[in-house]
Amino acid sequence: MSLERIEHRACFGGWQDVYRHRSTVLDSTMNFAVYLPPQAAQSRLPVLYWLSGLTCNEQNFITKAGAQRYAAEHGVILVAPDTSPRGDDVADAEGYDLGKGAGFYLNATQAPWASHYRMHDYIVDELPALIEAELAASDVRAISGHSMGGHGALSIALRNPGRYRSASAFSPIVAPSQVPWGQKAFTAYLGEDRQAWKAWDTVELIASAREHLPLRVDQGEADEFLREQLRPELLQAACERVGHPLDLRLHAGYDHSYYFIASFIGEHVAWHAQHLR
C-alpha cells in the first residue's frame, strides 16, 4: 500500500500532512490527514482517530478544530480520514445525507452501495495498518468524531472491544435506527431488516457491550439537530440501564458547528491522552 504525500505544512513544531492512497477495502482512491507532533521524530506515538460528519472530508477537522496544538502538547498523532469512498465509479445519491460524504462508517450490504461503501473495515483495519506500518504510529488507539462521525466513533469502538482505549464524540447520532438521518442511510445501505440495523446503532450496542470502554459525549443545547436527529438522552438511558460509564456534558448556547468543537477539543485530546498512556 503506497502512500503519496500531497500536503506538508509545519504546525506547532510538528507536521500537518495529507496523504493519498489506493484503498483495497473501498476500491477507491482515498485521502486522509495526519498530524505528526514533534515527539514523533523520536518515538512511535499513540493515535487519536477523528471521524467527521455529513458533507465533510479530511480537511474540515484539520482546518477548523484547532486540535494540533493539543496533540503537540500531549504527544498524540491525529488521523482524520475522509467520510466516504470517492471516485466516478462510486455510487452516489441526491441530497447531502446519503452517498458520497455520507458513508456512515458501516459496511453496506445492498446494491449499489456494497461494492465500495465499507467504511467500517477501512477505519478499523486497513487505515490503521497503513498508519502503523508507514508512519510514526504505535498500535495504541483512541477514536472520536462529530455528528455522523460521532455515531461512527462510538459504534466502531463498541463493535471492536480491545481495539481502542477510549471513545468520544461531539453531537453524535447515538440512535440512528430511531432518527431520520440514520433511517434513510440504514435503509439504503443495509436494507429494510431493522434487526440488521442494531449491529450499527450505538444505543443497541451498549446493551450487549462486552467492554465498559470510557465514553465522553459533548452536546450543544442550541444544536439545531438536537431533538430530531441526535437525542443524547437515549444514549444516557441506555448506559444507565447497564451501568456503562458515560460522561455526557451539555453546553448551553453551543450549536452543531466547528465553533463548538474548537471550544472543547482540547479537553477531549487531554482526556484521550490520559487513556492512551
Rank of each mutant, 00 (worst) to 15 (best):
69 R>P: 02
10 A>H: 09
237 A>G: 03
34 V>A: 10
270 A>Q: 14
218 D>P: 01
179 V>H: 02
53 G>I: 07
124 V>E: 10
230 L>W: 03
21 H>M: 13
49 Y>F: 14
188 A>K: 07
64 K>H: 13
257 S>E: 07
264 F>H: 14
162 G>H: 08
14 G>T: 11
97 D>C: 06
126 E>T: 10
64 K>L: 13
25 V>Q: 11
153 A>N: 08
181 W>V: 09
216 R>H: 08
198 K>I: 00
202 T>A: 13
157 A>F: 09
171 S>D: 08
263 S>E: 14
143 I>R: 14
210 R>T: 15
101 G>D: 08
276 L>E: 03
6 I>R: 10
50 W>C: 02
1 M>N: 05
19 Y>M: 05
253 G>Q: 10
71 A>P: 11
29 T>Y: 01
126 E>G: 05
138 S>R: 02
166 S>L: 08
129 A>Y: 00
83 T>V: 15
119 M>Q: 12
272 H>R: 05
177 S>Y: 03
14 G>S: 11
102 A>N: 08
10 A>Y: 01
95 G>F: 07
3 L>S: 11
221 E>Y: 00
76 V>D: 08
250 L>H: 03
9 R>N: 12
41 A>V: 12
183 Q>K: 14
8 H>I: 00
259 Y>Q: 13
276 L>R: 05
22 R>T: 12
93 A>D: 13
80 A>W: 00
82 D>H: 10
127 L>T: 11
117 Y>D: 04
200 W>Y: 15
234 L>T: 07
62 I>A: 08
166 S>R: 07
268 H>S: 11
161 P>H: 09
243 G>H: 11
133 A>Y: 00
151 H>R: 07
76 V>I: 15
158 L>H: 03
105 Y>R: 09
